[in-house]
């Protein structure tokens, strides 16, 4: 069974003078262990798609099921809990908690899940080591480079052992070396731990690494290319 099932998904923004059809009948599914990129020009609807799949936004019609659960049936507080337990997020602008160290940022999500302190610490150390930050665990985000912050964000996204990771333009703010480094880490985690990654991106480097590339234009799937 697919981990993410999207059927006839539409999203219309009615708040503007002219209704905008951000998504116009999307049918897609993602399997466990995919390393997929959703690409398309600005305004094509890729971020909207990721927001709906991530339970951050509602659809206008159609259906999204994650691991058999129809997101539409969840209340907003259930959705928060659902996100906490099932989805890892990596954002374009890193979005770490600035007053917490790298370690605490990763631990925080485990605390929200109610994990005991020693388990939190162990997992956070393990993940930060996996993303190559064993030396910078106790630094606050302001003392880390953009690439390092984004690696902390990846560690945080993985901390809760999510069913998949949604990464919205994760390399957009990074230089090419940091981007390569980050992509290598994510690819490695994908291969070694079978973690599912879905990116939205403009970045050709991400597209090159991805094993599946879904192209969206005007709210519709234009192409769906499986490279493996």
């Amino acid at each position: 069974m697919s981990i993410i099932e999207i059927n006839s998904l539409t999203k219309v923004y009615n708040s503007l003078a002219v209704p905008v059809h951000a998504l116009n009948g999307i049918d897609l599914s993602f399997e466990k262990g995919e390393f997929a990129a959703v690409v398309g020009p600005s305004g094509s609807g890729k971020t909207t798609l990721l927001n709906i799949v991530g339970g951050l936004d509602n659809s206008s019609s159609g259906k999204v099921t994650v691991d058999g659960i129809n997101l539409e049936n969840l209340s907003s507080s259930q959705l928060i809990d659902f996100r906490l337990r099932n989805i890892g997020f990596v954002f374009q602008a890193y979005n770490l908690i600035p007053v917490m160290t790298a370690m605490e940022n990763v631990e925080f999500i485990l605390q929200l899940q109610g994990k005991p302190k020693n388990e939190r610490k162990e997992r956070a150390e393990q993940l930060l080591t996996a993303v190559g930050l064993e030396e910078r665990m106790h630094a606050r985000p302001s003392k880390l480079s953009g690439g390092q912050q984004q690696r902390v964000a990846v560690a945080r996204a993985l901390a809760s052992k999510p069913k998949f990771v949604l990464a919205d333009e994760p390399t957009a703010n990074l230089d090419s070396k940091s981007s390569e480094n980050l992509l290598d880490i994510m690819e490695q985690l994908n291969k070694e731990e079978n973690i599912t990654f879905v990116f939205s991106t403009h970045d050709q480097r991400v597209v090159n690494k991805a094993r599946r590339v879904v192209t969206i234009e005007d709210g519709k799937v234009k192409s769906d290319e499986n490279k493996s």
């Binding site: 951050l56 928060i80 996100r83 997020f89 954002f91 600035p98 999500i109």
Partner: peptide, 16 residues
Amino acid sequence: VKELGMLMAIGMNRKR
């Protein structure tokens, strides 16, 4: 706003 949005996105509930 951005940070609070992130906290709610990653699963910090309203009560917290």
